[in-house]
Amino acid sequence: MTQPTSFEGTEQYIASDDLRRIVDVAVALERPLLVKGEPGTGKTLLAHAIADSLGMELLTWHVKSTSKAQDGLYVYDTVQRLHDSRFDDKKVDDISTYIHLGPLGRAFASDKRVVLLIDEIDKADVEFPNDLLHELDAMRFVIPETGEEVAAKQRPVVIITSNSEKELPDAFLRRSIFHYISFPTRELMADIVRVHFPDLGAELLEHAMDSFYALRGVDGLRKRPSTSELLDWLGALMATGVAPESLREHVPMVGTLIKREQDLALLARAAKGPGGRGR
């Protein structure tokens, strides 16, 4: 069985030509791939698709505002050791039993090449990406408690997503490959929808896309509806059996597309204005 060498997207994930090439380049150059784009354009799903397509295991590190770079490498469970020494008859001399590798550590230690997803790196502290620079560059680190060195047997494919909540440090950017997932064109969007809803009628799709892109075009929306919202909405439309022509007059279940109260108010105001479609 031969392993595919280039990323082709998957049945569930339609990637543009550009994105497919950039993934290949990042894999070949062994550089982290930084992916940005509007929320809901499939940044996180990309890593899953790459893992599927290249037949590799996926390790995920969901970054939170409290995450520290160290957590990705390893955690030394001192409390457990203290507990064991006091209440259990276990031997506590061997510190390595209390060292738990984090996602980055596991990606290095793995015998096979894996895909490592560092999700929403901008959620963490501003210094977080810089703290990872050395480890991502050298693909190795030392655990001082045991003196053990964890070095990558196979350099993992590193996919990093960012929602641009915070600016990333220059030094970090210089070392990564960057791709911006632009919002899908109508044609690509139609392909994506067909993958998820093969039974969707052409007429409903046409009308739904009209309404969807019109909504996205409304000025001043704080959060414009994206692919995932469109898919949810289409699912809801199909489940309730809406007549395709009725979409011209009225957008049902607008709450699945527009999530913010201010945006709903804005739409209501826009609808009242001249040329609006009423309620």
């Binding site: 290949d24 210089r174 490959i177």
Partner: peptide, 27 residues
């Protein structure tokens, strides 16, 4: 390095997008 190792296909359109991904870090 990418040019040397022939990661980039020998055509301008591919050079265009790969060079962009490597050189430019903001949309």
């Amino acid at each position: 390095g990418a040019l040397k190792t022939r990661v980039i296909k020998p055509e301008l359109t591919d050079f265009y997008r790969v060079a962009r991904a490597i050189l430019i870090k903001s949309e």
